[in-house]
Amino acid sequence: MTRVNAARILCIVFKLEIVLYSHVCVVLFWSLLQISTWSVGHRFAVSSLAWNNSHILTTGALDGKIVNNDVRVRTHIVSTYSGHAQVCGLKWSLDGQQLASGGGDNIIHIWDRSAASSNSRPTSWLHKFEEHTAPVKALAWCPFQRNLLASGGGEGDQCIKMWNTHTGARLNSVDTGSEVGALLWNENERELLSSHGFSQNQLTLWKYPSMLKMADLNGHTSKVLHMTQSPDGCKVASAANDGTVKIWNIFGNPAATAPKTNNQLFANFNRSSIR
């Protein structure tokens, strides 16, 4: 079990203008007006957060529990999923019906939203995928093909696998030759981007469904565990243990109608340079 400092932020997710991040066993909600804390039903640190819709926030923790929380009410636990030794990744499908969770136990579970009723009994999984041979952090739902999930295995597994989450069938498996930290689909083209560890610490762009390698993007000098996509779908930010966040314009040129940044977020605080 990974030991963590209580003052450290372990995960972060954006919802409109609210940043959410967790210390040990609590989730902090930050808005323009205030920060508030919530105790969530976990005995160990929350490591993953995922929004289901406007008011259901799913938390996954290092104790293996996954909890759906209704953020509008004080008695907020809606349902609980149990099945992992440690939660490393959480992603809701685009239609909000299925939750994919990746574990430190090398397992991927698919959970059905509709099975998560208003009682707090642990809900059983819809599918259990046990083909990865290392912890699974990288999960990405395909934006153009319903029920298609891509997953990536950590150090020692190195595979990207594709799953049909309706039938439970594995559709494809590619040995990338390196630990997979994160996966992102291109929302504009049939392409998948993966981030890697030793030895090249690169991002790799794959054509789907052939999984032909289109490009390697080099620059990081340590394993790349985090990636996120800009709201216009064109840019990707990657964070690595080399202490850098890099912005890549890999998925196309920003459209002229790209969403405008809300600078209100910055109006209330003194500006400082990033550390």
């Binding site: 972060i12 203008e17 940043v19 957060l49 620059g219 966040v245 790209a258």
Partner: peptide, 24 residues
């Protein structure tokens, strides 16, 4: 490239997100 020297090195964590308003 942005400097993020203090980023934690731990596999299960999730430390980066780009919001719909364009703020990373």
């Amino acid at each position: 490239t942005l400097n993020a020297t203090d980023i934690l090195e731990c596999f299960p964590l999730s430390l980066l997100d780009w919001g719909r308003t364009g703020v990373l």
